[in-house]
């Protein structure tokens, strides 16, 4: 996992609530056994006018010009501004993989579905939670100003707007530590091997049927 420290990037506003992971990356692309290459199919149903299939040459597909991802002013966006309950539905980690592969490293929304939220941290994406009123203001500012960028500083837990306004956000300490250092969870957990063995020995005594 790539470490995340600071990022200054273009913001893309996705103005709809309850965006589910099947909208982020439709099911037909889940047949892949790889972690990469999902970016071209990010928001596939909304982004293209035809039905996408795995292995298709996406360069020649008809584009939905009305969809925000296709607007020239948002090209190169690295920060996704979203509405509440973002990432609901299927647990597919292909959703953060697709966001990351497209170039997003930060999502800002009033709330997330738990599994998606968790999956983001495992892939170096920072899912930032902000109050709905703050999000409303950000949507207005992004839409009113072409080339609108935010500056995200994970260490300081701040988002700075072009006008210099600083917005604080909360992040779990452990997850922040892992993100800042690009740490692998499994390696960290395996430092507690003795604890896991001790737990298992105790459980084998009290609930032996779980080990047969």
């Amino acid at each position: 996992m790539d470490a995340f420290t600071t990022l200054k990037g273009i913001v893309l506003p996705l103005d709809r609530a309850n965006v589910d992971t099947d909208a982020i990356i439709p099911k037909q692309f889940l047949k892949s056994i790889k972690r990469s290459g999902f970016g071209v199919n990010l928001f596939d149903d909304w982004r293209y006018l035809d039905t996408g299939e795995p292995g298709m040459d996406n360069s020649g597909r008809p584009i939905n010009e009305d969809f925000v991802l296709n607007k020239p002013r948002y090209q190169g966006a690295q920060i996704l501004l979203a509405r509440k309950n973002f990432g609901c539905g299927s647990s597919r980690e292909h959703a953060p993989w697709a966001l990351l592969d497209y170039g997003f490293r930060v999502v800002i929304a009033p709330s997330y579905a738990d599994i998606f939220f968790n999956n983001c941290f495992k892939n170096g994406i920072v899912p930032i939670v902000m109050d709905e009123s703050v999000i409303d203001d950000l949507f207005k500012e992004v839409e009113a100003n072409e080339g609108y960028e935010l500056n995200v500083d994970l260490e300081a837990q701040t988002v700075t707007t072009p006008s210099g306004k600083v917005i604080k956000f909360d992040v779990d300490e452990f997850r922040k530590h892992c993100l800042l250092n690009g740490l692998d969870d499994i390696g960290l957990t395996l430092q507690h091997t003795d604890d896991i063995h001790a737990y298992e020995e105790k459980r084998k005594q009290t609930s032996p049927w779980l080990f047969s």
Partner: peptide, 20 residues
């Protein structure tokens, strides 16, 4: 409960999950 693929790998390797 449902988990992502990184957590699938984590459980296979450690029999545990990091949770709050």
């Amino acid at each position: 409960f449902g988990i992502g693929t990184s957590e699938v790998e984590h459980v296979i390797a450690t029999q545990c999950l990091l949770q709050k």
